[in-house]
């Protein structure tokens, strides 16, 4: 039996703007805003509210914790002595509102990458420790979603501090952690009534029904034995080699570093670019789109599970939606079942 850390409360749609405003008063609050290709997490401003009809935001929560580019440290020489100025994470959001379960789960997947001792990334950890994640369960998963197949759930709790489930007239609000309780309690919301709890269950059932099918992500052993399979020669053919899928993937986290004006920057990088593995000598071990696409899939579905026990994919479906050539990860994985040696 899983213990509920706190009782569920009910937040009506009318109260939502006031709750957001109150949250923003207590600390910087970011909200999932917008629809379609112009959606993402942005700082709260009066008037900004959740859009229940909107699917997962196009830009991911990853951007908040691992910005597209950020300064790691500054350096200078003073009287012949080199000096370092470590960067402190700036603009720390305290509350992030409207996080879909897949995005929260992606952060949980990335935590060990950035926080596993002895190499703790201070910038990532600082932002993570500061933030309370208020989730929004999915009552209507999108056509490209496949979170259950990837081990998630439309009402998944992993990585979240609070889960809100959309029901008639409002949201069932369930604190999941100490931090979540600290956010929920001051709101003084009424306890949820039994029929609201039942409605939340029904939302979950409907959503899960929609998400039947999906994609075979459990491919670790298959891929490990099929690195040289001839299928790879054709699989990448339609891929254009852009970084849309990796940059908008909530779990892709590769970066490069570069210097400018006495600052060391960290900036997103993508295994889909030829420069990703280009050596200083001019040699490039990944010579074509074949090797690059293979790397992306092997990392997500073979190397990562080898190290961490589960694939680095949460089934959010963004890569499926945005690929300019409609290379669909779900059917790619289906085909990859055939690389078993």
């Amino acid at each position: 039996m899983k213990e509920r850390p706190a009782m569920a409360v009910f937040l009506s749609c009318d109260q939502l703007p006031a709750v957001l405003a109150a949250s923003a008063e207590r600390g910087p609050t970011w909200v999932a805003a917008g629809r379609g290709e112009d959606s993402g997490f942005i700082p709260y401003r009066p008037g900004l509210c959740l859009d229940r009809e909107a699917g997962p935001t196009r830009r991911t929560l990853k951007e908040v914790f691992l910005p597209r580019a950020e300064v790691l440290f500054g350096y200078e020489t003073v009287d012949g002595v080199p000096r370092l100025h470590p960067a402190a994470p700036s603009d720390l959001p305290r509350v992030i509102f409207g996080v879909r379960p897949c995005d929260a789960r992606a952060l949980a997947l990335l935590d060990p990458v950035f926080e596993e001792p002895p190499h703790v990334d201070g910038l990532w950890a600082g932002r993570r420790q500061a933030a309370t994640l208020v989730g929004l369960g999915c009552d209507r998963p999108g056509p490209a979603c496949f979170c259950p197949a990837a081990g998630g759930d439309p009402l998944g709790e992993e990585g979240l501090d609070v889960l809100m489930v959309p029901v008639d007239g409002g949201y069932l609000v369930r604190p999941l952690t100490e931090r979540g309780r600290a956010w929920t309690e001051p709101l003084g919301l009424p306890p949820a009534r039994p029929e609201q709890l039942a409605a939340a269950e029904a939302v979950a059932d409907r959503a899960r029904e929609r998400l039947a099918g999906g994609a075979p992500v459990d491919l670790q052993a298959t891929l490990a034995s099929g690195f040289e399979h001839s299928l790879w020669d054709r699989l990448h053919e339609r891929c254009l080699g852009c970084a849309a899928c990796t940059y908008l993937c909530p779990t892709c986290h590769c970066f490069d570093v570069g210097d400018e004006d006495g600052r060391r920057w960290r900036r997103w990088d993508s295994c889909m670019f030829p420069t990703f593995t280009l050596h200083a000598s001019g040699h490039n071990p990944r010579t074509s789109g074949k090797e690059r696409m293979r790397q992306r899939l092997m990392h997500k579905f073979c190397y990562y599970p080898e190290r961490r026990g589960r694939p680095a994919c949460v089934g959010c479906g963004r890569c499926v939606e945005i690929c300019p050539a409609n290379v669909d990860l779900r059917s790619v994985l289906e085909q990859l079942k055939g690389v078993r040696a």
Binding site: D38, R68, G241, C242, A243, A244, L248, P324, A325
Partner: peptide, 26 residues
């Protein structure tokens, strides 16, 4: 500000096919 530098525009373009794009110059 919106552009995330994924270069999908460049990759989708039938005529953006330099062997090395200026963005990749080191």
């Amino acid at each position: 500000e919106r552009c995330i530098s994924c270069y999908a525009c460049r990759q989708a373009c039938p005529l953006c096919d330099c062997a090395e794009c200026f963005t990749d110059r080191a």
